[in-house]
């Protein structure tokens, strides 16, 4: 630190607690029960996951529910070369994927489990893997395996 240019270190730390609202609550609790819920507007085919309670396109309540099978298509993937604070998986390259679940029109971001990330391709079929111990939340999903 140069005397002429002082730097002041400071940390900002604020805890938050987010209310999910009815649609996300149903989704997160569904994950605990090993179920994957999507929502849409009655009479429209579009389904979103994670579900919305209100469709911003048709400006109607999205209370038409569907349970998804847990298979899907890899829309994209990204490989993190370093460990991450949120995911302390030592020695393993972390692969994130955007998965368009069968029956849904939006993507879910999650981990992709593969030993060979170099062989992944956009369009690869994947299947959701549940964790054995689940509480309501996205961590109830362990990630996706290649089919």
């Amino acid at each position: 630190m140069s005397e002429s240019h002082w730097i002041v270190k400071q940390k900002i730390e604020i805890p938050f607690h987010y209310t999910p609202g009815p649609a996300l609550l149903r989704f997160l609790e569904g994950l605990r029960d090993g179920k994957l819920f999507a929502s849409g507007v009655r009479g429209e085919s579009r389904k979103t996951v994670p579900p919305l309670s209100f469709c911003g396109r048709s400006w109607k309540p999205a209370d038409d529910w569907a349970e998804l099978p847990g298979t899907g298509t890899l829309e994209s993937f990204a490989v993190v070369p370093h460990g991450m604070a949120e995911l302390p998986q030592e020695g393993e390259r972390i692969v994130f994927g955007l998965v368009k679940l069968d029956g849904a029109d939006t993507c879910l971001a999650h981990l992709i489990h593969t030993k060979e990330p170099g062989k992944l391709k956009v369009g690869t079929k994947v299947r959701l893997r549940w964790r054995a111990e689940r509480s309501p939340g996205i961590q109830a999903i362990a990630g996706f395996d290649l089919l």
Partner: peptide, 19 residues
């Protein structure tokens, strides 16, 4: 505390009423 809805749904409530 609006613990029944999230931020997005809170916004929708006001916008819907204005429209």
């Amino acid at each position: 505390k609006r613990t029944d809805i999230n931020l997005r749904e809170l916004i929708t409530e006001a916008v819907t009423r204005a429209l």
